[in-house]
């Protein structure tokens, strides 16, 4: 769960003391906060940003937003969780501001169909024992690398829905989309990610479907 990753203490000071010092405008407290939390915030920003420059810009803006909102921080969540949310929201603002760019196509990563509605490909089991592999750092790194290959409009929705666990409505509001559009993008993002993972884990996992099975033929009429 996400909370596992950002429930760490923000520094050596206990959190109540740190927050009190921050609210009092203590320069050392601000430096402690930035030096102990920025690496994780930068990691989160990099998931959303297209470039390193954008990621650092997001982090800087997020801290400014956080500093301005400190008075409203009531300690109902961990400071690290609060900062995490701010950096995600800041990344979303940046994504919205960049939406004039043409969207990359995702079509080449989506399944294709014959005119009669059958899959044009025959899929093979990847043979990925997902529960076991989730435990492996290498697998997680591979999945992250595949997510990074998704077109931005789809990557951001997948990150927000499946990783940040935001609601469809929340994501729709944040990205200026309809809930239906969020659902469509999430589905397409998962399909595209599935294609990338299949290619990774079963290099020959998809074969041209000349003469696909009779089972598929029967299904079309069901």
């Amino acid at each position: 769960m996400q909370s596992d990753t950002h429930d760490r203490p923000t520094g050596t000071l206990d959190e109540t003391t740190l927050v009190a010092a921050l609210k009092a405008g203590d320069d050392a407290a601000f430096e402690t906060l930035v030096r102990t939390s920025s690496h994780r915030l930068l990691a989160v920003a990099r998931r959303f940003a297209r470039t390193e420059e954008d990621a650092q810009d997001i982090v800087q803006t997020a801290y400014m937003n956080a500093f301005r909102a400190l008075e409203k921080f009531e300690g109902q969540s961990q400071l690290s969780t609060w900062l995490h949310r701010i950096v995600v929201n800041t990344a979303l603002m940046k994504l919205r501001s960049q939406r004039t760019k043409p969207e990359e196509s995702i079509e080449t990563l989506l399944p294709t169909f014959k005119t009669d509605g059958h899959h044009a490909e025959r899929f093979r089991d990847w043979s990925v024992p997902a529960d076991a592999l989730v435990q492996q750092a290498e697998t997680r790194a591979t999945v992250r690398a595949c997510i990074a290959q998704l077109p931005e409009a789809y990557r951001s929705v997948l990150l927000l829905r499946d990783i940040e666990e935001r609601s469809t409505r929340d994501v729709a509001d944040a990205l200026g989309l309809t809930p239906a559009a969020v659902k469509t993008r999430l589905h397409r993002a998962r399909q595209a990610l599935s294609t990338l993972l299949r290619r990774r884990y079963a290099a020959d996992g998809v074969t041209a479907q000349d003469g696909v099975t009779s089972a598929g033929g029967a299904a079309s009429n069901s």
């Binding site: 996400q2 990753t5 998931r47 093979r124 989730v134 992250r144 998962r190 599935s194």
Partner: peptide
């Protein structure tokens, strides 16, 4: 009646599961 769609669905579910855990470490 369509094992090809069963395989595709399995892959989709694995994808969702792997995706959800990709950053929780």
């Amino acid at each position: 009646v369509c094992p090809n769609c069963v395989t595709y669905l399995d892959g989709y579910q694995d994808t969702v599961r792997l995706g959800r855990h990709a950053c929780d470490d």
